[in-house]
Each structure stands twice: as C-alpha cells, then as structure tokens.
Amino acid sequence: MTQTDNLLQVKDLKTYFFTEDGIVHAVDGVDFSVKRGEILGLVGESGCGKSVTSHSIMRLIGQPGKIIGGEIWFDGKDLVQLSERELRQIRGNRISMIFQQPTSCLNPVFQVKDQVLEVLQIHQQMDRQHGTARVHELLKMVGISDPERRAKAYPHELSGGMAQRVMIAMGLACTPELLIADEPTTALDVTIQAQILELMRNLYRNTNTAIILITHDLGVVADMCQRVAVMYAGKIVEQTDVRRLFREPKHPYTQGLIGAVPVLGVVKDRLEVIPGSVPNLIDLPRGCRFAPRCRARLERGLTICAEEEPALRPIGLDHAVRCWLYE
C-alpha cells in the first residue's frame, strides 16, 4: 500500500484545451500532495492553471478541454481512471468543491433547500423530511440566521456572501475528506471575504476535512494555509510550508510574488513588480517558462534557462523548487 498520510496525490497531471487557435497547455505536468486534515494553498496569477488543476481533480473539465495524462490518487484510487459511476460516489460526497462566483453557482430556478437537499438524497439516501431538517442544521452551521425561512429563498434573493455560505453548507453536507475551494472569496466584498474565511477556518477546526485553497491572494494564504504550492504557467514552481515560503522564498517567481505584496509598516521605495505577464499557454517558451520574465537569470547570465526546462527538485525538508539557480 502506498498509504502515507497523503490524502490526495497528484502526479504529472496534464490538462490541455484543444481550441481552434491551438492547444492550450493549461496544466502541464503538475505534482503536489495534500495531507489528511491540512489546508494547502495553491497560488498563482490568473491564467496559471490553478483552477483547471482543481477542476481536473473532480474531472470537471468540459469540451474542448481534456485530461491527457497523469494520475490523481485519492484513497488508493486513481481518479483519472475511475468510471463515471465510481466518480459520482466521490463527487460531492468525499470530495466537494466551492467556486468563485457563488451566486451563479446556484441554480436560479430551484429553492436553496432543494439544492442542498439533493446532495443528501443522492449520497446519504435521506428522505425529504429528515433531509430538510438536516438542511436547516447545515444552514445554521454555516452561520445563516433564520435557516427555515432562508431555505425557501431562490438564489437571486441571496447576497454573494450568503450564497457562498449555502455553497459551503452544500459542500460539507456529507462531511467530505477534502474540500476544494476555488477562489472562494475573490468575488466578495472585503468584509464578507473575512467572514467567509473565518467560517471556513472554524469549520476546518471542527471537522477533519482537508482543504485545497486556491487563491491569488498571498494574504489569504498566510492567514489560512499550512502548506503552499506556487503555480506558474501550468506547472508547480515551488512547494513548501507556509512559514518557509514567506521567510525564504526560493523561486524567483515566488520572490517576485511576495515582493509585490505591500507590507504594513514597512516602507519600500517602490513595490517590486514582475515585468510582463503570464506567457501564452499555446506557444510556450522553450526551457523554463518563467525565463523571459526572470530577472535573476539575466543577472546571473544563465543560458540554460532558455534551453531546457528545470525539474521540480527537493532542496530541503519538505521544500521543492523548479529552478536552475538551485541545481
């Protein structure tokens, strides 16, 4: 058995989108793991493939996208190889997911209670009456006051924060082992953002659910996560625990990301900026994908960066980096 304390292990995952303009290499060989009961942050700029990675875990990739390689091990099973029927036993039951735009994630023509109830009916075979009672309990648990009344609401009557609470209730209905939260607070107001994160933290403490928190916000990462994986252009470039990431970021991209965050009380002449933007995922640069934007490479005069792609290598205890500087 490969049973370590890893709940989920992603190996060399590749998800491409076959568009008429060419093949988009959205996720191109991603490796990472999630331990039981931990919060892993998956960080990167928009368009780096973090959402596609999370959707791939649930196999929620639609046309024209396709998972074309890799393994996703969960409880001794490779999710990539699972039949649709077996996958259904896992989705919403043992792994559930919440998304970025909570209001559009709820079906506009059904009442909130029926949407939460549905999960209980299919995974726990609850009847309507018991299910409804449980729905009220769940809504209360996620901090919705007057759950009996709110349960009868339609999604458009809810605020964004309220809708995200409903989504969380739906996600936690079957006490999953893993919750994937794909930018759960990005679309919300700052105050609501804090409330939702607080709620997630509390729920996390009271359950044994591991969380993959996908975000571009390093503040959220520092606040919530134990370990972090940094993604750039479809690949993980650095993975370590949260303290080390902030104290001694190794990859020039991570350094850039952290340098770009203003720190309260620290006066900088100017914020560091990573020049340029994420490369076009159709025509990827040869060699390291970050090379064209990499200041360190130019300062050191490394030529290999543009030639050959570095591997994700361990450079210390639980710390891996994908960069020629550390070879």
């Binding site: 303009d21 020049p275 340029g276 076009n280 064209p292 934007r293 130019l298």
Partner: peptide, 19 residues
C-alpha cells in the same frame, strides 16, 4: 549584461504573447 532595464524585460515578455 549587467544593466538590464525594466523595459527591456517587459519587451521580451511582450514578444511571447499572441500577435
């Protein structure tokens, strides 16, 4: 290769996005 300006890197970065 010591005096690299911000703009120079920006331009290189631009070159790899779609025309």
């Amino acid at each position: 290769m010591n005096d690299i300006t911000f703009d120079e890197i920006s331009q290189r970065a631009e070159a790899i996005t779609t025309p």
